[in-house]
Amino acid sequence: MQIKILKPGLLSTIQDLGRTQFLADAVPVSGAMDVLSARLANLVLGNTENAAVIEFTYHGAEFLAETDLLIALSGEGSILYTEDQELPADRPIFIPSGTRLFLKKNDGSFSYLAVAGGWKVPEVLGSKSTYLQGGFGGFEGRRLREKDVLKNTDSLSAESNAILKSLKGSASVSFPPWKAAKNDFLPLERKTIRVIPGREFTWFTADTLLDLLSKTFTVSPRCNRMAYELEGPPIIRLNTQELLSTVVTSGTIQATGDGKLMMLMADSQVTGGYPRILQVIAVDLPLCAQLKPRDEIYFEILGRKQAEKLYIEQELNIRQLAATIRTKY
């Protein structure tokens, strides 16, 4: 299976679920910003969840099916169209060779295009993810450009082959009547981001902590794969001691020197020296990834036990979904 990029869109890169083996060398995790969508796009095709996907930022990208394709799109950055019709997300789609595909506007930031077998790129330091600042991983260590040609790996799972066989009969675009019910994995209230207190939570004034848990925060235009800046009431420190550089991770919210909040994302530095005021719970990170400049959010505080329980429940549900797809085919 093969596609040619006709328009790359704002920022399109190859990602998987990240590079975790070289954190001690300060190599960022990278990987999909919205890991839930990346995983679901793979699972509905019968892929392993860590197979390489294309991460598209917003809409505007276009590509050509240079062969027949079995693909899936998941995520809220865009909606997939052919010249004739809108295509559904979160399910496998058969695309005949020669079809042009377009990514049109949706409500969020990122979407993920998976292909049966996964996109074929070499593994660098144990991952297929692109790390742009380091210039390695993914497709030649860079963002996708016009005329790039991407192929899948030829190692399709038995499920992928069965899904392909079930859809390939028709000469036109086709997809099954089922889809992964992604909303089952996400909270109903999308504006509330659940957090646990960060290690330096108590370094701030009582007023700041009250504001933090009651006022609105707005995503600033300064957001990228490393971090999203949040604007809101001033963040004032009680304790002004210097923090010795220590480990931070995706979801860590740092309070910077000028009283702003920085929510660290997939390409986050491994270490940082700003106080860590909050930590977004793992199951809400995909929601955060889909935020856009000017979106408003609230924080709701949980205990770490609750956060872990939500995480483990979600992981078991995702495994259940993968098992269901396996028994279907």
């Binding site: 001690a24 010795l244 872990e308």
Partner: peptide, 27 residues
């Protein structure tokens, strides 16, 4: 992964594998 800094050590793990392991503890 195990990540050292000046005066700390951070230990990254996969919670489901740990949860299902026989290590003592409730979570």
């Amino acid at each position: 992964a195990v990540v050292p800094t000046y005066a700390s050590l951070s230990i990254f793990y996969e919670p489901v594998t740990v949860y299902k392991s026989t290590l003592p503890g409730i979570n």
